[in-house]
């Protein structure tokens, strides 16, 4: 296990993997990938690969766990044992418990839960390979899966993590940048409504850096949002669209 800090910003100003500071990793998104789920999606941010299934709205037993006027959301963020360099125990860690909560809360902001009283909407997020930004890829995939399930929502959620490495603010940090950098700020928005539905900071930023980090995130989020919309309509555009 290496604890030697690699050079994160090279002399030419590029990052350790050759990206520019404001460059996203190659992103791949696909919807409707699981036959059993009501909605599903796979999202890859570079080496981070996440798959999400949505089941519901459906009735849940026992009945006393339901809410009379809206759907309950059950959200599980979980990492596969083979997703990390050192095998991760399948037992939910405190980190997975915290991330399940913040992701669920982001989805609560967008899903019209009041349309389905006494039901539950299950969102299962599995990180298949972890290389930084797993919660942001996971939330992005979850919102695509909810849309694929036809569950009414206010907006798609686009999420990305901004970091600070070797003093430079960078977009979409990977695992190396997360481990050896000075800050990691995952942020998610409903871009059409200009609402931030997930925001955490793990690290240290000055007030000024925070402002700049938000601007940088916005750039990434706009691009990811565009890709999400493309992914949803891809299968319908095999045939020409009508106007």
């Amino acid at each position: 296990m290496s604890s030697e800090k690699p050079v994160l910003i090279r002399e030419d100003g590029l990052r350790h993997d050759g990206r520019k500071p404001d460059q996203l990793r190659p992103i791949r998104m696909e919807v409707g990938v699981l036959s059993n789920a009501d909605g599903s999606a796979i999202v890859e941010y570079g080496g981070t690969k996440v798959i999400v299934a949505v089941y519901g709205p459906r009735e849940v037993h026992p009945k006393h766990l339901t809410l009379p006027d809206r759907a309950l959301i059950r959200c599980r963020y979980h990492m596969a044992p083979f997703s990390t360099i050192d095998r991760k125990s399948p037992v939910p860690s405190r980190r997975e418990i915290e991330l399940s909560k913040v992701i669920r809360e982001a989805l609560e902001a967008t899903i019209f839960t009041e349309l389905y009283p006494r039901t539950t909407i299950d969102v299962f997020i599995e990180v298949l390979q972890a290389d930084g930004g797993t919660r942001t890829a996971g939330l992005t995939a979850a919102s695509l899966a909810v849309a694929d399930a036809g569950i009414p929502m206010r907006d798609l959620v686009a999420a990305v993590a901004v970091g600070k490495v070797d003093g430079v603010l960078v977009l979409d940090i990977d695992e190396v940048e997360d481990e050896f950098g000075e800050a990691d700020m995952p942020i998610a928005m409903m871009p059409s409504l200009n609402q931030v539905v997930l925001l955490q900071l793990n690290g240290v930023l000055s007030r000024d850096e925070f402002k700049k980090a938000i601007e940088l995130a916005r750039k990434g989020i706009d691009e990811i949002y565009r890709l999400e919309k493309e992914a949803l309509t891809k299968k319908y555009l095999k045939y020409p669209e009508t106007v």
Binding site: A147, P152, D155, S192, T233, L237, V243
Partner: peptide
């Protein structure tokens, strides 16, 4: 939007 145009959640 036009009639029969494909739209997605959050589209104005």
């Amino acid at each position: 939007v036009a009639n029969r145009q494909i739209v997605r959640p959050g589209d104005l």
